[in-house]
Design a protein around this nucleic acid. Structure first.
Lengths: 242, 242
DNA sequence: ACCTGAACACCGTTCAAGT
DNA sequence: ACCTGAACACCGTTCAAGT
């Protein structure tokens, strides 16, 4: 009972490849076509345009978070929210480059509707629901933004420095682009552990103690902004206030 | 005591033009160069790359929010937070297309440092500070995302239709690009009022009452997610929990 | 130092033509 | 219906050459 697929590739395989490319730092119609063995133009038989692919991707990622925990009547309400938020964060932080799209599609997608409906089941006040969504998505977005331009290979943004004083800026680290097969983006693997990322943030956090005394004093806590503990702490505070 | 500017345009004017282009839906090195009367290549004398322009823009916008209210010892602490958050939201929602960049530059910029230092002055616990930042930036990001792809003129996404059946597609509505003055993008003006935007959201919120009973019942409140009242309500709840 | 002109290496999208 | 090949109208960035 196959629904008459006379296409040469499964649409879901296209989405799989697209997600890999997004994770790799650059989704391109041309690269995507090459990945699935098609011509760029043929992709427009599968999706109307690039934005449609991104939206489909956002919905798929949202669907990966376990809605079950949100509806598990065995746990106390606030725990259900917290558990779901933690799994959502985990899923999305595995694909940080896709997070901005999710922010944009937060309301619209079909899965987003289901999540909203479930949340209203545990938090009946819609204002409270939205406050939680704002906190959860805001925290994820902030963390993802940091992951994407520090851990993200060579996407398209400027690298580490911010003024070109050092001198050496071109000619290097630019060779991995010209190939047509585009298989070079698989050295990604596991991103650094939370402890490592906090340590890196701590080391980078050098401020003038005269000009920024409080920031200087709080440097350890600030470095740990991206921690799971901080995420949970803030969420619990918010839930306590609702 | 001019600092020896032998450039033909003020760097701040370049940033002004860049902001206008971002607001208009599409910042392009070529368009920016044309706006300020330069060649694309000449821009690289002012900024190392496009990302640097975006970061400078983010910092400038952050600086527009009134830091004074955050340090006004006359008001109670939570009020200072709330007032600052409201002005920041107002500033950023005037430039929704620039908001994603601000999410990315939230930690790094010099102005961001100052904001953080001031916030620690009123909310001494850094975890509380970050929770507030997460909520405020998250809410702004969610609202901006909706503004940018519903109100955003004709940036680079498909226009109204999505299939080119009408026939007439080239040759027209494309004349405003080749000119060198590029003044065509000033029909922007005032975006719709909050009440109007809520009404539009409410009208678009049609869900199956059987499948999504709670969403259906809460439709009015959901449409008002983007309201200043909702923003303030959630912020107050969070502050209450801290 | 700043700028131009021209190029390089890309993009997303469209479309006649084939099957 | 699906796909190819080729084109169109763009991109950001670099760089020799001029001043």
């Amino acid at each position: 009972m196959k629904r008459g697929p006379q296409r040469s590739v499964d649409p879901r395989a296209v989405l799989d490849a697209a997600l890999e490319l997004v994770d790799g730092g650059g989704l391109t119609m041309r690269a995507l076509a090459a990945r699935v063995g098609l011509t760029p133009g043929a992709l427009y038989t599968y999706f109307p345009d690039r934005a449609a692919i991104m939206n489909a991707l956002a919905d798929r990622l949202l669907a990966e978070a376990d809605l079950g925990v949100l509806e598990d009547r065995a746990r106390p309400p606030h725990q259900r929210i917290e558990d779901f938020a933690l799994t959502l964060r985990e899923v999305l932080l595995r694909h940080p480059a896709a997070v901005p799209v999710i922010l944009g599609a937060a309301y619209s997608g079909p899965v987003a509707l289901r999540v909203g409906e479930s949340m209203l089941g545990v938090l009946p006040d819609p204002r409270a629901c939205y406050a939680v969504m704002v906190y959860v998505l805001g925290a994820i977005a902030l963390e993802a933004a940091e992951l994407v331009d520090s851990g993200g290979k060579d996407g398209k943004d400027g690298k580490d420095g911010k003024d070109g004083k050092d001198g050496k800026e071109s000619k290097e680290s630019k060779d991995s682009k010209s190939g047509k097969d585009g298989k070079s983006a698989e050295a990604r693997g596991a991103l650094p552990s939370e402890a490592e990322r906090i340590a890196v943030r701590r080391a980078a956090l050098v401020v003038d103690p005269e000009a920024f005394p409080r920031t200087h004093a709080a440097a350890d806590a600030i470095a740990a902004y991206i921690s799971t503990d901080q995420f949970r702490w803030g969420l619990r505070r918010l839930l306590a206030g609702l």
